[in-house]
Design a binder for these strands. Structure first.
Ligand SMILES: [Mn+2]
Ligand SMILES: [Mn+2]
Ligand SMILES: [Zn+2]
Ligand SMILES: [Zn+2]
Lengths: 175, 175
DNA sequence: CACAAGATGAGAATGCTTTGCATTTCCTTG
DNA sequence: CAAGGAAATGCAAAGCATTCTCATCTTGTG
């Protein structure tokens, strides 16, 4: 519970406590909640307490997260890990989150709404992930998609290598 | 064993039977074998029978493969699945193969040598993977890498969506 | 407020991947 | 070419993220 309060204070997307939000009044819902509700409705699914908590936790984070992370954020709120795993694909299908990277054998996601498309630069040494804008690449990809008659859904551009810091300290080990 | 012969006949990289190759004579080795040997030497590791078979099987395939696939190709040659799993990261580190896509919970690789960099277009419906040339994107990425002072190792551009065939049959279901 | 459809939690199961360990294979040296 | 130490392997037993089962709740509707 404490961790949730901390998150809420520091996060731009969820300004009030997750605990205080009122699911029954649409006028208090965030954009992403409305979008999720609409999506669920179309599928004959329900916006439940657990799903709403998971959604809000996703948008409360400004970093990549995995199922375990969401679950730990919601510790004490009676949301099972199974439900987190069941909800993630729904959020993906709803266009609210996407798989960002897979590292250490775990799938890590990020929310999309309000987050412009970007590439991930993963340092193999320190595991740091840097994001860069890909607006210059997008037109080329979209053009290719049109040529292939391929309906774009998700674009993943992940580049691995060695970051500036690590290649420096490898060359000049200061220990 | 049969499958190996078939592969050898159809594959551009391994023109003679895997069984006939002679590991002890460098002049009969393929480029990729020499590269692997050099890499292993630098690490104080050995180019063993199993490793050589796995390497050759990787280059005998002209499609994405996973550990299980390699293992089944080498069925009857006494190469354990564990050794396949142990060898794959070596081949990756040696710069000979790379992780191409992860689908259905399995890591699928492809060999690199003689295979120009490309993007993967994964149809979420029929799971087909299409490859396209990315030479127009590379300069932009390399330029960004220079700006970040990032030492490039691997570039993964995976795009998911719906392929031409599937979006057609979805619109006009013919069943 | 009752009902039917959906959703959930807890834990078992799944299946890819990794590991421990006894045995075998390599490669160098004499 | 035999011996010896280092490294590699096969086999089976874990590990571990993710999925599934099922009895029990929730949710939205009328
Ligand atoms: Mn990101
Ligand atoms: Mn490929
Ligand atoms: Zn680094
Ligand atoms: Zn398709």
């Amino acid at each position: 519970m404490q961790s949730i309060l901390i998150l809420c204070l520091t996060d731009p997307y969820s300004l009030k406590s997750l605990l205080q939000m009122n699911l029954n009044k649409d006028n208090t819902m965030q954009d992403y909640e409305l979008q999720f509700k609409k999506f669920l409705l179309k599928r004959g699914l329900k916006l439940t307490r657990s799903r709403s908590l998971i959604l809000n936790a996703s948008f409360a984070l400004h970093e990549h997260f995995d199922a375990e992370k969401l679950h730990s954020i919601l510790k004490g709120m009676n949301v099972s890990l199974a439900t987190v795993y069941r909800t993630l694909p729904l959020l993906v299908d709803a266009g609210l989150i996407q798989l960002a990277v897979r590292s250490d054998g775990r799938d890590r996601y990020e929310h999309i709404l309000g987050h412009p498309k970007h590439a991930h630069w993963l340092c193999e040494n320190c595991k740091t992930v840097t994001e860069t804008n890909i607006s210059s690449l997008l037109p080329l990809i979209e053009q290719e998609a049109k040529a292939l008659n391929f309906t774009l859904d998700q674009i993943t551009i992940n580049i691995s290598g060695t970051c500036w810091k690590c290649s420096n300290s490898e060359a000049n080990p200061q220990s």
